[in-house]
């Protein structure tokens, strides 16, 4: 009995270690290549470790070639606007839907639910025309405006949070002479902090990694490239210089890695709460 237990224990860890190996090898091999000099890259096997772990030239070259300084600045602008905007919008929507009974409440919930089913890529054919009509192509503001749109996951996170905030809070504040705007901005919004952090992280990571619409609507790559589209620089003539490509890829992965290391809890809880729609 005891031997069997030890055996299953060993098997369990073997499976887990193998899985982690599969999950990390593609990433680790990228890190290894990013630290190799040109000569090393050409002459050694891809799996040999670099001689000098402090060789940062590839990162410097990748940073310059892809103009990542500008890309990070653009992405930062987009992130700040999209995160704050979408949180405010989703929280306001969730507040009204949760606290007030009115004709159309269920209808609006339904409309957002159905909207979440429409894959974003499918409707870009016509969204493109609308954006073109509004003169929002090749404008960072236009891209931000588009990204602010329906964020059903944040809406659900906030709706769930409001369910657990007693309405007696609102009533007490109103009896003290607060109006509904005050109730939302001064009483409830500060209490929403955990939900705000969670949806900010999820929305932030999604926006940071978004490339399809950034590529489609920010066509002037010299001025408007974001971090994810900046990697497109490495296609074409540079398509086989993997020491630079890997360095560029690593540079773009560092921010989400840091967020992940510091906010694991919020990410995990966000996935669970975003998943139980309705």
């Amino acid at each position: 009995m005891k031997a069997k237990k030890i055996l299953t224990g060993i098997l369990k860890y073997l499976i887990l270690i193998f899985a982690v190996f599969c999950a990390l090898v593609p990433l680790v091999s990228c890190v290894i290549t990013a630290f190799k000099t040109d000569a090393e890259y050409q002459n050694t096997s891809v799996m040999t470790l670099p001689e000098n772990w402090f060789y940062f030239d590839n990162f410097r070259i990748a940073w310059q070639k892809a103009d990542m300084g500008k890309a990070f600045l653009n992405t930062l602008t987009v992130l700040v606007c999209v995160i704050s905007g979408s949180i405010l919008i989703s929280a306001m929507l969730a507040y009204v839907l949760n606290r007030f009974r009115f004709v159309g409440n269920a209808l609006i919930r339904g409309l957002f639910m159905i909207a979440s089913l429409i894959p974003g890529i499918a409707s870009q054919v016509t969204v493109y025309q609308i954006m073109n009509h509004l003169h929002l192509i090749n404008s960072l503001g236009g891209y931000i405006f588009l990204m602010l749109g329906t964020d059903v996951i944040s809406i659900y996170i906030f709706l769930q949070f409001f369910e657990n905030l007693s309405p007696s809070l609102d009533e007490a504040a109103i009896l003290d002479g607060c109006n509904y705007f005050g109730v939302f901005f001064r009483i409830l919004l500060p209490l929403l902090k955990p939900a705000i952090v969670t949806s900010a992280i999820l929305k932030g990571v999604a926006t940071y990694n978004e490339y399809y619409m950034a590529n489609l609507y920010l066509q002037d790559k010299n001025r408007f490239q974001t971090v994810s589209t900046s990697l497109f620089t490495f296609t074409g003539p540079m398509g086989s210089q993997y020491q630079y490509i890997c360095a560029g890829v690593i540079l773009t992965i560092i921010p989400p890695l840091l967020i992940f290391l510091f906010c694991q809890k919020q990410i995990y809880s966000g996935i669970s709460s975003g998943a139980v729609k309705e």
Binding site: A19, A23, T229, V249, P256
Partner: peptide, 15 residues
């Protein structure tokens, strides 16, 4: 095991 979900699409493509 979770981290790959956070890597951006283009980066995954190159990797």
């Amino acid at each position: 095991l979770y981290f790959p979900c956070l890597v951006g699409g283009i980066a995954v493509g190159f990797i």
